[in-house]
Design a protein around this nucleic acid. Structure first.
Length: 223
DNA sequence: GCGCTAACCTATTCACTTG
DNA sequence: CAAGTGAATAGGTTAGCGC
């Protein structure tokens, strides 16, 4: 295959720039001080005979090969140290592992993709848990409202209507949220109301930058 | 401002592995 | 052998740099 568009196997000194657009949350890996003027040279490859040669480097004859466990181990360790790859480290890994720098870059890219997928799965679990908690709370409150309504009706039957009208406002409880305001949740809006106001199910990916997840403990580099 | 370059990304392909 | 996994490719976006 012919040379692709310019990519990172050209080993330049260009600084990496933080990704500015959506999913910014996931781009906050460790973005300071990228590639500070590192002078790169092509590595001498395949000295050990261990490294695989992708088809594109070998006239299309060589098939894809899996990386060895040793190679994966070192790559993984390196990834745990730093999720992104600077040219210097790429060349170092390339020499140490007997792989093309391009292969190192591809492995890191794919690894970041897997990492991000795991992060999203984790975030899903966290949000689902929050949803379940709030749903449960809502259910309880609705039941409480029903009980109070029943009590109110009963009391009204005994001729104390005016007293309860004064307490609960002009009407009886009409909805869960109204009931909360009129009952023991006098201080501002309840959690449920806030959720409703915010359109609970409308969180976008961009929101990941701002949504705080209190009990969410992100592993450095899961998977 | 525009083109070039080199990072990054997502989506996809393709080959290997596994049940 | 189909499904899953991972290495590699294709094509797009972004941002720095020089003109």
């Amino acid at each position: 295959m012919e040379e692709q568009k310019a990519m990172d196997w050209h080993y330049t000194t260009k600084p990496f720039l933080p990704h500015p657009d959506t999913l910014g949350f996931f781009y906050n890996y460790n973005n300071n001080n990228r590639y500070p003027g590192v002078e790169m040279k092509e590595a001498t490859m395949l000295e050990t005979g261990e490294g695989s040669i992708p088809a594109m480097y070998n006239g299309g004859k060589e098939k894809k090969k899996r990386l060895t466990s040793n190679q994966l181990e070192l790559l993984e360790r390196s990834f745990q140290e730093e999720i992104k790859l600077d040219p210097e480290r790429k060349m170092k890994l390339s020499r140490e592992l007997g792989l093309q720098p391009r292969q190192i870059a591809v492995w890191f890219q794919n690894r970041r993709t897997r990492w991000k997928t795991k992060q999203l799965e984790h975030l899903y679990d966290v949000l689902k848990h929050q949803y379940d908690v709030i749903s449960s709370e809502k259910q309880k409150l609705q039941e409480e409202v029903m009980k109070l309504k029943a009590m109110l009706s009963k009391e009204q039957g005994f001729g104390t209507y005016s007293r309860y009208q004064e307490i609960s406002g002009v009407e009886t409880v009409e909805s869960t949220s109204e009931g909360l305001r009129g009952s023991n949740k006098g201080q501002g809006k309840s959690k449920i109301e806030q959720v409703a106001d915010e359109g609970f199910c409308c969180l976008s990916v961009e929101d990941y930058n701002t949504v705080s997840v209190p009990f969410c403990q992100w592993p450095v580099a899961p998977y």
